[in-house]
């Protein structure tokens, strides 16, 4: 029977350790957070693309042994947002897509939604992966205003609807970067940022 208390101790410690792991993930002490959305299933960080009608239903494709999902954009602009646990200074976006060369594609985060200001950048071909084009672009997020801890993105392709063409997206990956925790002041600053992103932010007002 005395050995049972060890079992009870383990049962109590497991959720505490798991909570510590979740807090560590949310804190991002390394200063890096990578989120990706492959359109196959709902993602806790990245929202679905909207409005529906400008993007078509998600298609599940199976070719030989490979399975993937894709979504077509037929009218611009299209929006999605990313839920962030804290502020970051830089975002590196990688997007897998298919389009014809005469169609322009721009993606960018909101700087100030109330003023409808966006930091759009051209998505240019960086490399190919099979039949997919891959574009990589970096954004400076300093000064970007989040709304309810969400960073809004706009996907633009001017003239897409009149051209009758479409852009097919397979996956997006966004790496958010900030200074890693190197010292106690950094840790204090990170804790403050953590609280400012919670309902306890009134403590700092």
């Amino acid at each position: 029977m005395s050995s049972y208390k060890y079992i009870r101790f383990i049962l109590i410690v497991i959720p505490i350790i798991f909570l510590g792991y979740l807090l560590y993930q949310d804190f991002s002490p390394s200063g890096r957070l990578v989120v990706d959305y492959d359109f196959c299933s709902l993602n806790p960080f990245v929202s679905v693309w909207s409005p529906h009608g400008r993007v078509l239903d998600i298609e599940k494709i199976k070719i030989d042994e490979s399975k993937y999902c894709q979504q077509k954009m037929v009218i611009d602009p299209v929006y999605f947002d990313v839920r962030l646990p804290q502020n970051f200074t830089t975002a590196r976006l990688t997007v897998w897509y298919q389009k014809s060369s005469e169609i322009k594609l721009q993606i960018g985060p909101a700087v100030d939604l109330s003023a409808w200001q966006w930091r759009l950048k051209d998505i240019n071909y960086a490399r190919a992966e099979g039949s997919w084009q891959v574009g990589i672009v970096e954004y400076d997020l300093v000064g970007s205003k989040l709304e309810n801890n969400r960073l809004h993105f706009l996907v633009s392709s001017h003239g897409l609807d009149t051209s009758g063409q479409e852009i097919i997206f397979r996956k997006i990956e966004i790496e958010f970067i900030k200074e890693p925790i190197n010292s106690w002041p950094d840790l204090m600053e990170r804790v403050k940022g953590f609280i400012l992103f919670s309902r306890l932010k009134f403590l700092f007002r």
């Binding site: 798991f18 979740l22 807090l23 806790p44 992103f197 309902r199």
Partner: peptide
């Protein structure tokens, strides 16, 4: 309760 205090703390991962 923690999820209510900070959205995504738990639900982003579990």
């Amino acid at each position: 309760v923690l999820e209510l205090l900070k959205e995504g703390l738990i639900s982003n991962y579990f």
